[in-house]
């Protein structure tokens, strides 16, 4: 199944968050510095658990690694215009959710080339834009949204204040009760119980 890696033919089993497993070549896995640090020299007895990421994301990440096995050593982020057709297709066919998952997985696996290309793609989305356009890209709430949020929070705070005031009132009553001398308190309770007993027996 898995063995200490030395040859590129060696296959490793990867386990995703769904518990599914799939094969990845040793050469592709070695692009991950996290893998190199954890398993390269000691090998793995069973599937390697990358269970924070789903199968689709991991497959996408290792698809990239398999493709770039024979590429020259990474030497800094490429300009988008210098990316190969395959690279462009690879990025373009991902939806935003997948793209974000791939960045996070690539960052965890410490795959420098893929992480940098993803970051370069985001940086490119932000370049040459004004504040409002940038806010849309990075999905920050706008001033209006913040205002609305603040209003909701103010309402919540007012409601919480009311609840707190009521609680304080109740506490005050309890305190008054606690302040009664013990004998008086016993008497009050007795009276209450007697009334209850009377009303019960009357029924």
């Amino acid at each position: 199944m898995t063995s200490p890696a030395s040859s590129s033919e060696v296959k490793y089993l990867i386990e995703s968050s769904e518990g599914n497993t799939f094969d990845v070549s040793g050469a592709a896995l070695r692009q991950s510095n996290t893998f190199n640090a954890m398993f390269l020299n000691i090998g793995a007895d069973g599937p390697i658990p990358f269970t924070d990421y789903n199968e689709a994301t991991l497959k996408k990440v290792f698809e990239y690694c398999e493709h770039s096995v024979n590429e020259e050593n990474y030497s800094g982020p490429k300009h988008q215009d210098d990316l190969s057709k395959w690279d462009l297709n690879f990025f373009n066919e991902m939806d935003q959710k997948m793209f974000i998952d791939v960045i996070n997985a690539s960052n965890f696996l410490d795959i420098e080339r893929l992480t940098s290309y993803c970051c370069e793609r985001i940086a490119r989305m932000l370049r040459g834009k004004n504040t409002q356009e940038m806010i849309k890209v990075i999905t920050l709430p706008t001033a209006e949204e913040l205002e609305a949020k603040q209003k909701v929070e103010e309402k919540k705070a007012a409601a919480a204040k009311k609840v707190a005031e009521k609680a304080a009132e109740t506490a005050e009553k309890t305190e008054t009760l606690e302040e009664l001398p013990v004998q008086q308190l016993v008497q009050t309770t007795r009276n209450k119980l007697t009334r209850k007993y009377l009303s019960f027996s009357n029924e």
Binding site: I100, I103, T115, S116, C118, C119, T139
Partner: peptide
């Protein structure tokens, strides 16, 4: 895309790839 939710290493890389004015 929620920039603030990315790991800080990713955020740092994105900022590094941005020019002074964009930043």
């Amino acid at each position: 895309m929620k920039l603030l939710r990315f790991p800080s290493l990713v955020q740092q890389k994105i900022f590094e790839l941005m020019g002074f004015h964009s930043l």
